[in-house]
Simulated assay, not measured.
Amino acid sequence: MEDLKGNSVLITGGLGFTGSNLARRMLDEGADVTLLDRVREEKLPVVDGISDEVDIVDGDVRDEELIQEQVPSADIVYHLAAKSSRPAANENPQKNLNINCGGPLNVLEAATSCDTPPRVVYSSTLATVGNVSKTD
């Protein structure tokens, strides 16, 4: 892994399981870490032990202005914010589309508008496609 000491890392969806664990790793590597997520009480326990070491921005990847403010200060952006494909999430497909398609678009547009664009890492999980059964 490259030396991340002193690099600024922005993690969208940073209060989720994957984002919070990535934040711990980035801190171990010496990075300055900002987590962008919609802050809710039930999400905060995942950052126990690191909440004093990270900046937490309460926001949504659908907020173009907020993303335009946050992305330019990062050297690396890990875009993890997404709406899962669980049945409850499918009750509002337009919201899911706005988060899962509009969010990455906002991050990429903000990155490409920078004089020195940050590296953007987009990650996904199998949860985005739901339960897939193996066929013979």
Rank of each mutant, 00 (worst) to 15 (best):
Ile67Thr: 06
Leu66Glu: 00
Ile99Val: 15
Asn92Cys: 02
Gly102Ser: 03
Arg38Gly: 06
Asp32Tyr: 11
Asp48Thr: 14
Val54Phe: 06
Asp60Met: 08
Ala81Gly: 06
Lys83His: 13
Asp37Lys: 05
Val39Trp: 10
Arg62Gln: 11
Glu42Leu: 10
Val57His: 04
Ile67Pro: 09
Val39Glu: 06
Asp52Pro: 08
Val33Lys: 01
Ile56Gln: 10
Gln68Ala: 13
Val71Ala: 08
Leu36Glu: 03
Glu42Asp: 13
Gln94Thr: 14
Asp52Trp: 07
Ser85Ala: 15
Ala89Val: 01
Glu91Trp: 12
Pro45Gly: 08
Asn100Tyr: 11
Cys101Ala: 15
Ala82Ser: 12
Ala31Lys: 07
Asp75Gly: 11
Asp32Arg: 15
Asn96Phe: 08
Leu36Met: 12
Ala88Pro: 03
Asn92Asp: 14
Asp75Ala: 05
Pro87Lys: 03
Leu35Gly: 05
Arg38Trp: 06
Ser85Pro: 04
Gly59Ile: 06
Ser51Glu: 13
Val33Ile: 08
Leu66Ala: 00
Ala89Tyr: 11
Ala74Ser: 07
Ile50Tyr: 04
Leu35Asp: 07
Gln70Asn: 01
Leu66Asn: 01
Ile56Thr: 10
Pro72Cys: 08
Pro45Val: 11
Asn100Glu: 04
Glu53Leu: 10
Arg86Gly: 11
Ile56Cys: 01
Pro93Leu: 03
Val54Asp: 03
Val54Glu: 00
Leu66Tyr: 02
Val61Gln: 00
Glu53Thr: 04
Gly103Pro: 09
Asp63Phe: 10
Ala88Leu: 13
Gly49Tyr: 06
Asp48Glu: 15
Leu35Thr: 06
Lys95Thr: 14
Val47Pro: 08
Val71Arg: 09
Arg40Asp: 10
Leu80Glu: 06
Gln70Glu: 15
Asp37Tyr: 07
Lys83Trp: 07
Asp37Gly: 06
Val61Pro: 02
Val39Gln: 01
Ile50Trp: 02
Val61Ser: 01
Val47Thr: 05
Ala88Arg: 14
Gln94Ile: 14
Ala74Arg: 07
Asn96Leu: 15
Leu44Met: 15
Lys43Ala: 05
Val33Met: 00
Asp32Ser: 13
Arg86Leu: 13
Gln68Leu: 00
Pro72Arg: 09
Asp52Asn: 11
Pro87Trp: 05
Val77Leu: 03
Leu97Thr: 10
Ser84Gly: 14
Asp60Ala: 04
Arg86Val: 12
Tyr78His: 14
Val77Met: 05
Val77Ile: 03
Lys43Pro: 04
Val57Tyr: 07
Ile76Met: 06
Pro45His: 04
Ser85Asp: 15
Leu66Thr: 05
Glu69Val: 11
Gln70Gly: 07
Glu65Val: 10
Leu80Gln: 09
Asp32Ile: 14
Asn90Gln: 15
Gly59Trp: 03
Lys95Asn: 13
Val57Cys: 05
Val47Met: 07
Ala89Phe: 08
Glu69Leu: 13
Asp63Leu: 03
Val71Cys: 04
Gly49His: 02
Pro93Asp: 10
Arg38Met: 10
Tyr78Leu: 10
Ser84Thr: 15
Arg40Glu: 13
Leu35Ala: 08
Asn100Leu: 09
Gly102His: 09
Arg40Cys: 00
Leu44His: 05
Asp32Phe: 10
Val54Ser: 01
Val77Asp: 01
Glu42Arg: 14
Val77Gly: 05
